[in-house]
Structure formats: C-alpha cells, structure tokens
Simulated scan of single mutants.
Amino acid sequence: MRKEASTNARNEADILRNCGMAYTLSVIGGRWKPTILFTLLNNGRMRYNELRRSINGISERMLVAQLRELEEDGLVKRIIYPEVPPRVEYELTPAGISTEPMLMCMSDWGNHQRIQKERLVDTSREISVS
C-alpha cells in the first residue's frame, strides 16, 4: 500500500501533471502495454483468447491486469456480448488508435539502437580476440 501524502507520491503527481512525456510513459509504459496496443493496431478487434495467443510469454493474469489499465486510461474498449458462453472482445478507442505514430517511432528507434549495440558488441569481441 502506498502513502498518498508521501513526498514520493506528491512528486510523482506533480511530474504527471506537468510533463506530457512522463504521463505518456505512465499510461503506455511497461513490458506488455506497447505489445498489446501494437497487436490491436495490427489486428483490429480481437477476442480475448486470440489476443492472449498472439502475445508470446504473457500470463493470463498479466494480460487481464494490463487490459484493465488500458481500459481505465481510455485506450482500449472492452465489448461484452450477452451470450452463453460469454464472449469478450477488445478494440482500440480513438485515443488508442492515436498511439500508432508514437509506437512506430519508438519501435524504429529501438530497432536502430539495438542494431547499433549489437555492432558495438561484435566490434569489441573482434578487438579482444585479436
């Protein structure tokens, strides 16, 4: 449990209120949220099990938690069909769709940086072998 009146909590609230980048990272940051958003961007509306199967390594508990947070933040819409057995689908809201250019830029930047880092590691191995 977190103390709402703590200095740390007040500092976090101030940063989120005054810094767009910090707020953005608080909404879409983490290991799984960008992957969930990107999967829904690429596939459109998906049933829960389709979404779970399409994201390797995510646990059911984590997927549910991340979907709830994305729904609370207005990026994902949960659609429940009154059927037996129940059917639940997820799709991006207009705010969720608007993340596409940002996610693509982040992906491009990450791919570029990863390649650069791999080249540095390969170069350092060649130097240490020589």
Rank of each mutant, 00 (worst) to 15 (best):
102 M>A: 02
15 I>L: 15
23 Y>D: 04
53 R>C: 08
101 P>M: 04
58 I>S: 01
28 I>T: 06
43 N>D: 06
81 Y>C: 01
115 I>M: 11
48 Y>D: 10
36 I>R: 05
121 V>R: 12
106 M>Q: 13
3 K>G: 02
47 R>H: 07
49 N>E: 12
108 D>L: 11
99 T>H: 02
59 S>G: 14
29 G>N: 12
129 V>D: 08
99 T>C: 09
127 I>G: 02
77 K>A: 13
69 E>A: 10
62 M>S: 15
115 I>G: 00
112 H>M: 09
79 I>P: 00
47 R>I: 06
21 M>H: 13
10 R>C: 04
67 L>W: 05
67 L>Y: 03
103 L>D: 04
26 S>Y: 03
95 A>G: 08
35 T>C: 01
39 T>H: 02
94 P>T: 05
20 G>A: 08
65 A>Y: 13
65 A>E: 10
7 T>C: 06
66 Q>M: 07
33 K>N: 08
112 H>I: 04
49 N>D: 14
118 E>L: 07
46 M>H: 08
92 L>W: 02
84 V>T: 14
4 E>Y: 10
31 R>M: 11
44 G>S: 11
120 L>F: 09
122 D>T: 02
11 N>G: 09
53 R>I: 07
72 E>W: 07
51 L>T: 00
78 R>V: 09
36 I>L: 12
97 I>V: 15
84 V>A: 07
41 L>Q: 13
16 L>P: 03
18 N>I: 13
106 M>C: 15
78 R>S: 05
106 M>A: 14
128 S>W: 08
36 I>Y: 10
89 E>M: 14
10 R>W: 08
93 T>V: 07
23 Y>A: 05
78 R>D: 05
75 L>P: 14
7 T>G: 08
75 L>C: 09
94 P>C: 00
112 H>C: 03
82 P>S: 11
92 L>Y: 03
22 A>E: 04
1 M>H: 09
90 Y>G: 01
102 M>D: 01
58 I>G: 00
106 M>E: 06
32 W>A: 01
52 R>Y: 10
120 L>R: 13
124 S>G: 00
65 A>R: 15
69 E>Y: 11
94 P>I: 02
122 D>A: 04
78 R>G: 00
12 E>D: 08
20 G>M: 10
98 S>V: 04
73 D>S: 13
44 G>V: 12
58 I>Y: 01
2 R>L: 12
34 P>I: 04
105 C>L: 13
15 I>D: 06
13 A>M: 05
69 E>Q: 15
84 V>K: 12
26 S>D: 14
39 T>K: 04
19 C>Q: 10
118 E>K: 03
109 W>A: 05
88 V>T: 11
12 E>P: 01
117 K>M: 09
117 K>N: 04
59 S>Y: 10
61 R>M: 10
92 L>F: 04
125 R>S: 00
